[in-house]
Computed example of a mutant assay.
Amino acid sequence: MTAKEYFQSFNLFSENEIHAFLQLFEVREVGKNEYFVREGERCKEVAFIKSGIFRSFYMADDGKDMTYCFRFPNTMMAAYSSFISDCLSKESMQAITDAELMVLKKEAVDDLVHENINWIKFLKIIAEQEYLELENRFFQLQRDTAAQRYETLLRNHPDYIQNISLQYLASYLGITQRHLSRIRKEISF
């Protein structure tokens, strides 16, 4: 999916509008292990992931980094609470593969919102999707076993899972790498 197709899928913008605002995006290459945003910084951009995989994580009190989310191609990405509130980010977003992004500055988003009501609708949809994703993650952690969470990840992103290190997968699932190895042996897709 291209960025154009992504925005077309919302049925909010005309072809001319999409063409015009896509010109505002900056293409950015992000190398493996590089950051889109770091914990403690302000997130002043939003990105469409053209290629690559990102992980969102935070530092726990014991100094461990805790992966709580993966971002895959053809989705939008931002440290959302920092982006909308201009507060310091509580999360880091790191490329776990080489990636290509289309980046839009917050000022440009604010201008688009003032120029076109459909951007307000678009941002509302994105906020709703973020909420649903957060709720789904909460219920997964409360109701599903680690094996079930791993199966869901495999089912939803089979082409990308092999690019995520066991360390990050185990952190995301809330288990040890050893436990993850056992789960992987038991599950075959």
Rank of each mutant, 00 (worst) to 15 (best):
A95H: 00
A95E: 04
T97R: 06
T97A: 09
D98G: 08
D98I: 02
L101M: 06
L101K: 00
L101T: 02
M102P: 01
V103K: 00
K105Q: 15
E107I: 14
E107N: 12
V109F: 00
V109Y: 00
V109A: 04
D110T: 09
D110Q: 13
D111Q: 14
L112E: 02
V113Y: 09
V113K: 03
V113T: 07
V113A: 01
V113I: 14
H114W: 13
E115D: 11
N116V: 01
W119G: 01
W119I: 07
I120G: 07
I120Q: 14
K121H: 13
K121F: 09
K121I: 10
F122V: 02
F122I: 05
L123K: 03
I125Y: 07
I125M: 10
I126K: 00
A127F: 08
A127M: 08
E128M: 10
E128L: 11
Q129S: 09
E130K: 10
Y131F: 15
Y131T: 09
Y131C: 11
E133S: 15
L134V: 13
E135I: 13
E135S: 12
N136P: 05
R137E: 07
R137P: 04
R137N: 11
R137S: 13
F138S: 12
F138P: 03
F138M: 15
F139D: 08
Q140R: 12
Q140S: 15
L141A: 08
Q142A: 14
D144M: 13
T145N: 07
A146Y: 02
A146H: 02
Q148E: 15
Y150M: 04
E151R: 12
E151D: 09
E151W: 05
L153R: 00
L153I: 13
R155G: 06
N156M: 11
N156K: 13
H157Q: 13
P158A: 08
D159T: 11
Y160V: 05
Y160H: 11
I161Y: 06
Q162R: 12
Q162G: 13
I164K: 04
I164N: 03
S165F: 05
S165I: 09
L166M: 14
L166A: 14
Q167K: 15
Y168P: 02
L169T: 07
L169K: 01
L173I: 08
I175T: 06
T176M: 04
Q177W: 05
Q177A: 09
R178V: 15
H179Y: 12
L180R: 00
L180F: 07
S181P: 04
R182Q: 14
R182F: 14
I183M: 03
